[in-house]
Design a protein around this nucleic acid. Structure first.
Lengths: 240, 240
DNA sequence: CGTACGTTTGACTCTGTTCAATTGCCGTGG
DNA sequence: CCACGGCAATTGAACAGAGTCAAACGTACG
């Protein structure tokens, strides 16, 4: 990655990493985890607002998020930008770059973060000898595809309020998995970024927030969201 | 797959298959292709309108399309349906099922088709010994993700006419790769299916077709499309 | 403390949806 | 072979939801 950056690097340590459930090594034995430690050679810190990488850069590594929050976005020649995903602790960045051997999206930290660099060639080589690793990796890629199909569903057939409800429920679910509150969280992204991801203008996002708040389903205070009535929020999705 | 179906099976033969450029075996030597032949044990024919598989079925195999045309769609509990993709000769079906070990979309032939069954467990096993096969497979999965991001872009930020133009250009490009005309083709899907894929109602799709025809960019006669002015069609995409 | 940016809200516009009527196409059966 | 029925596609008119433009307010950061 960014050769001339000052991002500090230290050795990773998968064996003690608290992400073991979420990240790659799921289901490996102790010996295999030690091997993996050698694969994941470096951690690096990315400050809020910094790019992990930009579209066009040559692909070499995937990045597992050890801590933090990222957005990925693609940019059309005519200047339009589209946020293609938000990624949090334990998730894997860069899967889309394998096909072209070039990162084809910008990846930006939305809070101070830390990632583990996973050199892809080494990952492939190692997975030849560790079938469970290979299989797990395939599942992760496949899950990414399923996730994208969900977003396509959302973009293709839901209206503004439904989209926002689905988005909040998705975030909530992912926070829970990581041990945080299901109903109380801080949004790391702006209304505009949410809008881009959901195919809406930021004013529409703001209005949808306000409407959900007026109905006492959630309360919003700038970036802080509290879900008061999870069931009614759920019922917002899929009732058109 | 469908144990009690009457779909006839014959041995596949990758070595002589005309899809070598598009399908999995890209870049393999003769010996490896023979191995692959043993992997891809069966071809089967699917008639127009038939399901290759339905959502919920246990996943075991990927399917390479040897000839034909498919749509994949997901169904929400509330009855909404979303077409998530159209697949043609040389493309690979079932990648989304790896994550859950269950097909999570319906896959329907839109014309009489023929697929090669690729047992996934065997594919993984074999790719341990053939690094190029593994790498190529990773690229295919990654390409699927990139493609989905493109659709998200389309759904998130284009208007009706742009979406249709982008759709037609995409089809055109894929037909060319397969040796067909870039400017003259038969649509295998209905307006409703196009609409579902593009996040539009079928009336809107129909109107967009008519408008492009009125501008002499294309001509449409039911399922038959001719592109008259490729450049102006291209300029329709990305000018809002 | 002040500025810049993000957010909210209102009024108006416009694109796409909805509802409905009509035409065209294709396969089936008389 | 033609007539019929059903499904797909086209087109129009009225409507609604999201977009646009603009103003005002809050918050965060230097």
């Amino acid at each position: 990655m960014r050769k001339n950056s000052l991002i500090p690097r230290v050795n990773a340590n998968c064996a003690t990493c608290s992400l073991r459930e979420l990240c790659l090594p799921l289901g490996l034995n102790e010996h295999e985890i030690i091997l993996l430690d050698k694969l994941v050679s470096h951690k690096c810190k990315i400050q809020r607002g910094e790019f992990l990488h930009r579209a066009g850069l040559r692909f070499q590594s995937l990045y597992a998020i050890r801590r933090g929050f990222f957005k990925t976005c693609i940019l059309e020649k005519d200047g339009r930008q589209q946020v293609t995903g938000f990624y949090m602790t334990g998730e894997l960045l860069g899967l889309d770059a394998i096909s072209t051997e070039t990162y084809n999206c910008d990846t930006v930290a939305l809070e101070d973060s830390e990632v583990c660099e996973v050199p892809f060639a080494k990952l492939e080589e190692m997975s030849r000898n560790i079938p469970t690793l290979m299989h797990h990796f395939h599942k992760i890629m496949s899950r990414e595809i399923v996730k994208d199909h969900g977003v396509m569903m959302l973009l293709g057939s839901m209206r503004a309020e439904e989209r926002l409800a689905a988005f909040l429920l998705n975030l909530s679910r992912r926070f829970v998995k990581r041990g945080y509150s299901a109903s109380d969280f801080i949004l790391r992204m702006t209304r505009e970024e949410i809008g881009s991801y959901l195919g809406l203008k930021f004013e529409t996002v703001s209005r949808a927030f306000s409407r959900l708040q007026d109905e006492n389903i959630i309360s919003v205070n700038n970036k802080h969201v509290s879900i008061h009535d999870m069931d009614r929020l759920r019922s917002k999705v899929g009732n058109s």
